[in-house]
Design a protein around this nucleic acid. Structure first.
Lengths: 124, 124, 124, 124
DNA sequence: GTGGTCTAGACCACC
DNA sequence: GTGGTCTAGACCACG
């Protein structure tokens, strides 16, 4: 599993790990019943404190994406579709605030659409 | 000046104050050369520590929106357009990340547009 | 007397008034024994609080540039030369700090000279 | 890191800290990616309230010189050149006013140069 | 009256 | 352990 962790990003590392795992599932690199890398293994791979990985896994488990199996580590329990849906909900939620603030500041809807299109076209 | 401060919001109070002042300028309730409420006055109005208001004002000054005048208080030094432009840039920046992630996770552009429209129609 | 007061300047107004008076003397617009405008008159001319003018006059008196005469207001008691010398001392003092900091930061003397020359050539 | 803080100086402590950090970078004692002393550590070293150090660090971050990393502390993100350039610009700006006033008050350029040389030779 | 700095100490999120 | 926010209250300079 190859997660992209950006230590300079303002979003917390445990959150980036959670997103990374979900992406791997959506890309089909991780499927139901597959085993995740162990906490210590992933931690040393991405040069991060094991506590941080543990927190990410714990929260992924709470939201029902993965599950701990005694002595075996964590396994995936959601399929692509389910993950994609929850990701979509999360991201839509993130859009809410900035969009409503743009509206409040008097920006016309058309200008918003322009920006959105431009971002969408962006590579990267 | 009537700012809506939500003490339970996750975004820091000094930031809410900054946004509030910018909004007042964009709405035309505050114009160039106008005097802002004094630190102590605003602080007692919104039931917040004067230091918090002071920080908000100081940062607005650093970004060139307002200016302190010795013994007289703060005045507005940016006009509607300048404030609106910088707010627009900031918020567009905030949209970037979540939108690109939506794209990467395979959501079609049309579905994004739907969500945007829905958020825009929202009250609040 | 026509002082240039810049309310946006970081240097306090009473200081700007002091400098203004000294400049008038150096330019020969004010000579020994001449009477200064009254505190209230100057204050209303330059749209400033009378306390501020009073403070400026008081400090100019303490440094021996002007003097209060009962019922007559303030008069000039220094001549051009004396004022020019004290102004020179003051300004040299102001140069000290920034120059020493430039030195500490590893800027070569030649580069400093360049900047000085450029500033000197400046209009305004 | 060994900052010289003078509690009796007229310039605010947080500003002295900012300058001190920039100097350490310019001297090469701090390089890109290096970790700064933690807020609490530096605060206790120089006998100052943590809030004061926090403000200095925060403002250095806003100007792009250093960066906070979640739970890990601050690291340097500018190199010597960048810091030196911005320091140079700032200080040149500070020289402007007094030099132009010297010129206006009729001091000859040669006399200015003399003073500059003398200050430069100064210890301290 | 105004803003500006500083201290002391609390509480929170992240690693 | 780290930084980030906030409160309460003191002291100073400026007008």
């Amino acid at each position: 599993m190859w997660l992209n962790i950006d230590l300079r990003s303002p979003s917390p590392i445990y959150d980036q790990i959670k997103r990374g795992v979900r992406e791997e599932i959506m890309k089909g690199n991780l499927n139901e019943e597959d085993t995740l890398p162990s906490i210590r293994e992933l931690a040393s791979q991405i040069r991060v404190n094991p506590n941080t990985v543990a927190r990410a896994y714990r929260e992924l488990e709470m939201e029902g994406t993965i599950m701990a199996r005694q002595g075996l580590g964590y396994i995936v329990v959601s399929n692509e579709e389910q993950v994609r849906d929850s990701v979509f909900d999360n991201l839509s939620g993130e859009l809410r605030e900035p969009i409503l603030r743009l509206k409040k500041s008097g920006i016309p809807f058309e200008k918003l659409l322009e920006v959105i299109k431009e971002i969408w076209k962006d590579q990267n």
